[in-house]
Nucleic acid binder design. Structure first.
Lengths: 207, 207
DNA sequence: CAATAAATTAGCATATAGGAAATATTTCCC
DNA sequence: GGGAAATATTTCCTATATGCTAATTTATTG
């Protein structure tokens, strides 16, 4: 174990939960108006559903007043929206009704010193999962780098060959084709091919 | 296409973002106190960082008053917390530092009329992904059931054999070992083995 | 237990949110 | 375009949150 976290393809998943330094002011009123209108409710109807006065709603939507938290709760309850969702910036998701085929060997290559990654389904943005095949070249134990470690969870299926999965806190485990492992990716992990030949694995990462 | 959505193993992923019917009242004050204390800030310090008066902070934490949304914003800014996170119920996640090995063939069987699923990593709760291997028995086109359709995204890798993936809105596509597909699982989908033999696929579902 | 820090409460002043009704604006139909 | 109905905004009053200062209570710590 020596250097820095190497070897993993860069993950491009929008988190949607990072620290929000409030660069954009979060227009609560605007947001609420959008929601109310998307429900095609009049202020009067919204008023009845929430128990807040028409005038109050109007003022809130026009950012003339800053609603009390109880008011926000009444709003959320009455309009059937949940509060986190109210403040979360619109979650960026994969385009619906999309599919992408990756023929064998036609993924995006991403070689590193010890692994040969082949990223799959790369032309589909904002996926929840990042799948890739990895060829683990035969190598000696000593050039074992530092732990790989990152946010999220990881699933690993051995497609060909034999290898050892090293994970922090555990004994290394030998795996052969067909074996699979699911683990917390924050925990350091690394793969070593055990046989003379390269090993091939499928990896799926989710943040 | 005929019956009802069949054949998929039941997914057990906590959503953490469903409609929140506010069964539990969401103790904002308590939450804020926890956060402040976890930062080991005194009310005085928090007051300086947020620009809110000590007494006000105290009252908010003790739920004696319902803070104005601007107050909440000042709090969030001053204490470097983001608002969605403030209101989100603590996300139930997989136990950290955990890993689970599933040896080939030792998953949890889950047979259905047309598929033989083998669920992987089943003794790890609250995973983001649900991986399983599926044996697709050779079958004729006519006993093709209705679309399978569910929340989330799905990744599919063909391990053995040849099959056709049918998806709503698209032409069916033939896939052989090594080919993979990533798609929106809300879109109807179904697999048919093309050859005489069964086909084997790996599936990973994320909500 | 004493000494100190931290938190809560109290009292009062002020700013501002919430509710009811009046006013303005928009929508829509003729 | 004019007028009526629907919808939204504003006004005015009341309720309540916020800030300040200081007193009291409750931890902390030596």
């Amino acid at each position: 174990m020596s250097a820095e976290q190497p070897d993993m393809p860069e993950l491009k998943i929008e988190s949607g939960s990072g620290l929000q330094t409030n660069v954009e002011p979060l227009q609560l009123g605007k947001r609420l108006r959008e929601i109310r209108q998307s429900l095609s409710l009049t202020l009067e109807e919204a008023s009845q559903k929430t128990g807040l006065a028409r005038s109050t709603l109007s003022k809130i939507e026009n950012e003339q007043i800053s609603p009390t938290f109880t008011a926000v709760q009444k709003l959320a309850n009455g309009l059937q929206i949940d509060i986190p969702q109210l403040f979360a910036k619109p979650r960026s998701t994969m385009a619906s009704g999309r599919r992408v085929l990756t023929k064998s060997g036609e993924g995006t290559p991403h070689p590193t010193s010890t692994y040969e990654h082949e990223l799959l389904s790369t032309d589909l943005a904002r996926k929840k999962m990042v799948p890739f095949k990895t060829r683990v070249r035969a190598r000696s134990f000593d050039d074992f780098g530092d732990w790989v470690r990152h946010e999220g969870e990881e699933f690993l299926l051995v497609l060909e060959g034999e290898l050892a999965l090293y994970t922090e806190f555990y004994e290394p485990v030998a795996m052969v084709a067909g074996d699979s492992m699911y683990y917390d990716a924050n925990m350091g992990h690394a793969l070593v091919s055990l046989s003379e030949k390269d090993a091939l694995v499928l990896w799926v990462v989710a943040r």
